[in-house]
Computed example of a mutant assay.
Amino acid sequence: MLLGFKTELKLNNKQRKLLAKHSGVTRHAWNWGLGLTHQILDHNRDNPEDKIKFPTGIDLHKWLVALVKPVCPWYYEVSKCAPQYALRQLAEAWKRAFKKTSKPPRFKKKGRGDSFTLDGSIKLDHFKIRVPKIGWLRTYERLPDAYQPKSVTISRTADRWFISFKLEIEPFNTHKPYPVVGVDLGVKALAVLSTGIVVEGAKSYRKHEKKLSRWQWLNRHKVKGSNNWRKAQVKIARLHRQIANIRKDTLHKLTSYLAKNHSRIGIENLNVSGMMANHKLAKAIADGSPVLRVIIKSYELSQSPTV
């Protein structure tokens, strides 16, 4: 059984700069690989008699080493795993797009979803973790040092950095008191269970909407790129993070209750994109309900007895 663990890092300025370099190289490798694959697809579409084989993640990394690294020496300032995992994830994203299970990958922008993955000599030790090229990083909470992960993902939200990894543990709580439960998602209430339990949504966006609107309104005339503009952007990003964390807390508590106490979970198949087209309901739906179905689906895949 795989258990995910995510915690915030306690960093100094030097470490923050090094993490930013890793995320920058990862973003550059992703965008370079995405541009190259777009050129290959365009060539194959315009020249059907002279098609080029679509590259795998290994092929992209070989071309990166031969073509990009010689002209971009700052690639050698970070771990080789960062661009390697970026191209591997890009290849997987194209596979999902070709199978029509997801949309084609898009170019990444600085400051949005900054993250990178590392593997190798990783070691956990109480309140710190050692990762390749970067060294020891301190954390705010104690780490499960009884397990040693094979890879870690470091990501940034607003002005804070987080590290996450997967741990393989023995299954627990295999006995579940209730065999089946049905979940009805709604707008007024987050979910209504077939057992009669009504789960109210956190409605975190509704509670902070005025505050967020106020801060965005005050930021409208600031010069883009100035110090005051950057401070305001961080302030707004922190509020977005707070809204998301409140929503995630409510959803994880509900899905944990469902997974731990029920062997099978029945949930309606919602057309979320169609529901979001209704401008009268879109805000309420986006404030919680669609995310619940995604998280329940992830629990179903991780729990073998569930469906």
Rank of each mutant, 00 (worst) to 15 (best):
S121V: 06
G57Y: 15
W30E: 02
A86Q: 12
V183L: 12
K69W: 11
R293C: 07
A282D: 04
Y76P: 10
S256R: 06
I197Y: 11
Y257N: 10
D119A: 00
G113H: 05
L36E: 14
K21V: 02
G111H: 05
A286R: 09
K95T: 10
A93E: 01
R130E: 08
H43T: 11
H175D: 13
N228H: 11
V152G: 02
P83H: 07
I197A: 11
T56H: 04
T153I: 10
S226D: 04
L143K: 02
Y76K: 15
L41M: 10
E268P: 02
W229V: 02
L67G: 05
N278C: 00
N227W: 07
W217G: 07
L19F: 08
E170V: 08
S226T: 04
R241G: 11
K248Q: 09
V25E: 12
V234Y: 04
R220F: 04
L212Y: 01
N44E: 04
I134M: 08
H28A: 12
I154A: 02
K176D: 01
T195P: 00
I129R: 00
D46A: 11
A202H: 12
L2N: 10
T26Y: 01
A232T: 14
V291R: 08
Y75I: 15
K211D: 11
N245Y: 13
F5K: 00
N271L: 07
S289G: 00
W217M: 06
K207W: 04
V199N: 04
R45H: 14
P83R: 12
S304V: 12
G4W: 03
V198P: 01
L34K: 04
W161T: 08
Y299S: 10
F107Q: 06
S263D: 14
S164Y: 10
L258E: 01
A232D: 15
F172G: 07
P290M: 01
D249K: 14
A66K: 14
S115T: 12
L87K: 06
V294K: 12
K100A: 04
D42W: 01
V71T: 13
P179T: 05
E268G: 02
K108F: 01
I285P: 02
S289T: 09
M1I: 10
K231S: 04
H240A: 03
V152E: 05
W74Y: 15
V192W: 01
N173T: 07
K103T: 05
N47R: 07
E77T: 07
I169K: 01
G225A: 03
Y299V: 14
P149E: 00
T26A: 13
R247H: 09
K17R: 09
R45E: 10
Q233G: 12
L292Y: 02
C72H: 15
T250D: 06
I296N: 03
H208N: 05
L212T: 00
L212C: 00
V180S: 06
G288D: 04
